[in-house]
Amino acid sequence: MRVLLVEDDKMIGAAVLEALKDAAYAVDWVRNGDLAIEAIHSETYDIALLDLGLPLIDGLEVLKRVRAERVRLPVIVLTARDALSDRVAGLDLGADDYLVKPFEIGELLARMRAVLRREGSGTPPVLTNGRLCLDPATREATFSGEKAVLSAREFALVQALLMRPGAILSRGELERQIYGWTEEVESNAVEFLIHAVRKKLGAIAIRNVRGVGWMVDRPTC
């Protein structure tokens, strides 16, 4: 899943970025309101984490513009502004949740999962097509009796495929679910991850459609 992180504080932004990457999210980090609006217009995100005290364009104005354009983007406001009036303003403008700094990363991740579930785009407790199963809580995957704990990027790849069983995903589509803008992606990175997953779960856990991409089977029932 792809996250837009809008945060001008370098220390906070770097910490949240690393935590989200460790949790298998692909993250794009921008540091002002102008870049946030540009990113939202140029990319599709599953959720945005929005600071309010931003340079150039305030976070509340970013939120106001996004909602005026009827962009259906879940937004969690992350801010040091803890006054009731600020929380009310953010929620009234269309924020889906509001988290006051400083916060625990575990709580942020839990709130993200909750918002995504409400939007219908979050992962269920276990993703499965009837043969391949993926547990987001533990990153454990099971296929035909073989069990393995996946790395963050292996998990992101399998999750992307299981969210659309039967669909063929291209290299570009998979890279988009695994890597953020600033991450260097080697030309064979997806193939490397697929090889690693197959080594753990079996050669047919992920199927290759030559010249097109990769897929997992449709649900068996």
Rank of each mutant, 00 (worst) to 15 (best):
A68G: 00
E61C: 01
R67F: 02
L54V: 15
R70C: 06
L54T: 13
L73P: 04
L60R: 05
L54S: 14
R87V: 11
L54K: 14
K64E: 10
G59E: 08
I76Q: 10
V66I: 11
L91I: 11
K64M: 01
V77P: 11
A95G: 05
R67C: 02
L84I: 15
D58A: 12
E61D: 13
V66Q: 02
L54F: 15
D58E: 15
E61V: 05
L73A: 08
L91Q: 00
E69M: 08
G94Y: 00
K64S: 07
A95S: 01
V77T: 12
A95M: 03
V62D: 04
R72W: 03
D96N: 08
I76R: 13
T79C: 11
R70Q: 06
E69V: 02
D58Q: 10
A80W: 09
E69W: 05
G94W: 02
R81F: 14
L56F: 15
A83F: 09
R70P: 00
L63H: 04
V66R: 03
S85A: 14
V75K: 06
S85C: 07
E61M: 05
V66K: 05
L54Q: 14
G94I: 01
R72S: 11
T79K: 10
L73K: 07
L56H: 15
R67S: 00
A80G: 15
R67G: 01
L63S: 06
R70Y: 01
G90P: 03
T79L: 09
L60V: 08
L56Q: 14
A95F: 04
V75I: 13
G90R: 06
E61Q: 08
R72P: 03
D92N: 13
E61A: 02
V75Q: 06
L93Q: 05
L56P: 09
R65F: 01
A89W: 03
A68W: 00
A95Q: 01
V88Q: 04
A83H: 10
P74Y: 09
G94P: 02
I57R: 13
L93I: 07
D96Y: 00
V62H: 01
D86Y: 10
S85D: 14
V71Q: 01
E69C: 02
V75N: 07
S85K: 12
E61H: 00
L78H: 07
E61G: 00
P74K: 08
L63G: 05
R81K: 13
V77I: 15
S85E: 15
A80M: 13
